[in-house]
Design a protein around this nucleic acid. Structure first.
Lengths: 106, 106
DNA sequence: ACTTCATATGAAGTATTACTCATATAAACT
DNA sequence: AGTTTATATGAGTAATACTTCATATGAAGT
């Protein structure tokens, strides 16, 4: 790990450490979607989704393409896929039956 | 991404989204260290380091081995290395000259 | 057993962050 | 131009998480 990467990592992880943003990414994993579609799929308010899309966009975890009044967001598979894969691997190997790591129990 | 992984991911990312914990991991990347050694290296209080080691341990990002009164922590390279590598790759390809993503500017 | 050294724990205050609601912008259609 | 639809923005409040300081535990040496 290069020196100074700590700062960068903090921004990355803070960005991803949010249930709404993670659920949004989970949706975008399947296909590009507009703000309204994401909101409907998650049962959340439009403004909440819009707010949460901004940090994801700022870090290029997603990209935007405006189609008329609809704004269609796509996931950056190149970045997101390997990270989620690494987490799945960790969960399997180091937290096989759930436990503290996954449930939050002490 | 498997359904339900959102919850797991949230715990993972929240755990890592903290400068003290990231700096601690950065230290442990080089070699196993005791609490006091980490605190000294980072110029932080012992209690702060100890507090922050607990969540890292609970998620098995690090492991502990007690040597007398010293508690020596080691990093889980299998999990941490690929994640940091993915972030470095993202930073290079999608945030080449810093920018919003890295600096936090709007 | 007492002292020292190393680490962990608890509680309280502070700071951060997220969500909600109201409103603004912006495009398409009449 | 006005209306509707889609998205974005702003401000205030609520919820969470972090740090600090004081104290507790626990091992090792005298």
């Amino acid at each position: 790990m290069k020196k100074g990467l700590t700062t960068i990592c903090h921004r990355f992880f803070s960005n991803l450490a949010n249930p709404t943003r993670l659920a949004t990414l989970e949706q975008l994993m399947t296909k590009p979607m507009s703000v309204g579609e994401i909101a409907a799929a998650l049962g959340q308010e439009q403004s909440m989704i819009s707010h949460n899309l901004q940090p994801l966009l700022a870090c290029n975890f997603i990209s935007i393409e405006n189609q008329g009044k609809k704004h269609v967001y796509s996931i950056n598979h190149e970045t997101i896929d390997p990270i989620f894969k690494a987490i799945e691997n960790h969960a399997e190997k180091f937290c096989p039956r759930g436990g503290k790591c996954l449930t939050g129990e002490k």
